[in-house]
């Protein structure tokens, strides 16, 4: 029997990548799963394609193939209005939301000294305000039921500085500050809130030309083969990246009964990058 039998789970950014995998893993362990994604194909300032509508359809198919109910809502996490509406419709159908995975995010690149204002702003809007917009309508529902598990995806860049992604680092540090504060606010009412901090993960966010260029600034058109050793050099365990299943393992642990007394914590399935950190 799965650990999440009968639970209702909501995953943002669930059309593909880590979000899709979290959704499937929860479904496999007995949960009904709703996913929210903007599936806009592209988003200003982001140099790689984000998810398409077909990706979201595919996630729904895969959840249903696990024998569980799936719900999908198209919403941009930057829009409080869209998120409030999407969450309300999901809550209406599911009756409640037990687990929220705050996962939607983008990654762009540039040094602070010459960063375009809109590169900064879009990052903060999606990764930080988007996380707030995701949490805000869900927390009251959880408090009403006296139960909730929130897991938000930060990054090892949320625990340290990192050249050329200062805006991403700021958004991911900010996310940890929000989640720790939220954890304190709801600790006496049955809701936990935690953060996972991956290093590189095998998803489209990592596998694209601009990310290869971040890791190999010395080459004009680096390929994946060029970039892999550089990815690996950031990590401590001798692997270039974690698989989405490794991140899901940590997310599901934090959402499980076994972690009921863990809140306001960061957990780093980061292949050991955190060994160099606090």
């Amino acid at each position: 029997m799965g650990r999440f039998e009968g639970r209702k789970v909501l995953v943002t950014g669930g059309a593909r990548g880590q979000g899709r995998n979290h959704a499937l893993r929860f479904a496999r362990e007995g949960a009904d799963v709703a996913v929210i994604d903007s599936v806009a194909g592209e988003i200003e300032t982001v140099p790689y394609p984000i998810a398409e509508p077909e990706d979201l359809d595919r996630t729904v198919e895969l959840i249903e193939a696990e024998g569980r109910s799936a719900l999908a809502e198209v919403a941009d996490v930057r829009s409080a209005e869209q998120m409030d509406g999407a969450v309300a419709r999901i809550a209406e159908r599911f009756g409640r939301i037990d687990v929220l995975v705050v996962n939607a995010g983008i990654c762009t690149f540039g040094p602070i000294e010459s960063m375009d204002r809109d590169l900064w702003q879009t990052m903060i809007d999606v990764n930080l305000t988007g996380a707030f917009n995701s949490v805000r309508p869900v927390v009251p529902l959880m408090l009403e039921h006296g139960f909730g598990r929130i897991v938000a995806t930060s990054s090892m860049a949320g625990r340290a500085g990192w050249e050329n992604i200062g805006h991403y680092a700021a958004s991911k540090w900010g996310l940890i500050g929000m989640v720790k504060s939220l954890a304190l606010e709801v600790a006496d009412r049955g809701v936990t809130a935690n953060v996972i901090c991956p290093s590189s993960v095998n998803t489209p966010m990592m596998h694209n030309d601009s990310s290869y260029r971040l890791f190999r600034p010395d080459l004009e058109n680096p390929t994946m083969e060029d970039a892999l050793p550089a990815f690996q050099s950031v990590n401590v365990l001798p692997v270039p990246y974690a698989e989405t299943d490794d991140i899901s393992d940590a997310v599901l642990f934090l959402a499980s009964e076994e972690a009921r007394y863990i809140t306001g914590a960061t957990l780093s399935p980061s292949t050991g990058v955190n060994a160099r950190n606090v």
Binding site: D246, D249, S268, S270
Partner: peptide, 9 residues
């Protein structure tokens, strides 16, 4: 095995 990529934590 679920924590295979967690170390130094």
């Amino acid at each position: 095995d679920e924590a295979r990529f967690i170390t130094g934590e």
